[in-house]
Amino acid sequence: MKKLLLASLLSTALMGVSANSQAEDYVIDIDGQHAFIQFKVSHLGYSYLLGEFTEFEGSFSFDESNPSAASVEVTIDTASLDSNHAERDKHLRSDDFFAVEDYPQASFVSTSYAPNGDGSGILTGDLTLRGVTQSIAIDVTEVGAGADPWGGFRRGFEGMVTLTPAEFGFDYDLGPAAETVDMYLSIEGIRQ
């Protein structure tokens, strides 16, 4: 009887340790506007054009004891592009650029995460844009994690990646200064 009780207590304790070391799932906080997907591209080499996608959704999984198991999935409504200029946005949504009628969504699905051991790392995954899928590597830094004022728990990251639009089928010539686009991501998730 003592052996059975000891085995039962040990089993329960191990299950608790296993549960504590499992990945936690988060939904990206779109409703509270605590997440951003922004871009910056050179305008003729004289200044920068800034913009963002205002409608997207996604989730991520993170385990503090095993960060390399992290995963992320995001879907972006390409028509939600906003560069703070209606006529330019209309052009960017056209077939010259995002072709939003043919490709209403872009998506990112991670394939691996390589932590650096200091809260930063490289998130690799497949970005699909204009029907073309390319592997990209995002430099990621954890911003923080903890309880929120509403009784929940949140975790946030930021990331940077430079994309080459021509690799995704963009062929509108904006000159050599605009051959790449910098993307900035600020993602805050609510633990489920």
Rank of each mutant, 00 (worst) to 15 (best):
F53V: 07
M1A: 11
K90R: 14
T133W: 10
E52C: 09
A166W: 14
V143T: 10
Y172M: 13
I28T: 06
T78G: 01
D82A: 01
N20L: 15
H91M: 07
V132W: 02
V27S: 07
K3S: 06
P165L: 02
D29I: 12
Y113L: 08
L49A: 07
L127D: 10
L163E: 02
R88H: 06
E158H: 09
L127I: 12
D102T: 11
V109S: 05
A86N: 11
I187M: 07
S65W: 00
A19D: 09
D82R: 03
Q33P: 13
S65T: 04
T12W: 15
E101R: 00
Y113F: 15
S68Y: 04
F157W: 02
A178P: 01
A13P: 08
T54N: 04
E167S: 15
G45I: 01
V17Q: 08
S110A: 13
S110T: 00
A13Y: 14
L49I: 15
V181G: 03
T111E: 13
I190Y: 09
G144R: 07
G175Q: 04
T180F: 11
S65Q: 03
D89T: 13
S71M: 00
W150P: 01
G16T: 08
L44K: 05
L44E: 02
F60P: 05
L44Q: 02
S18M: 15
V100D: 03
Q33N: 13
D126H: 06
I76K: 06
L50E: 01
G156S: 02
D63E: 11
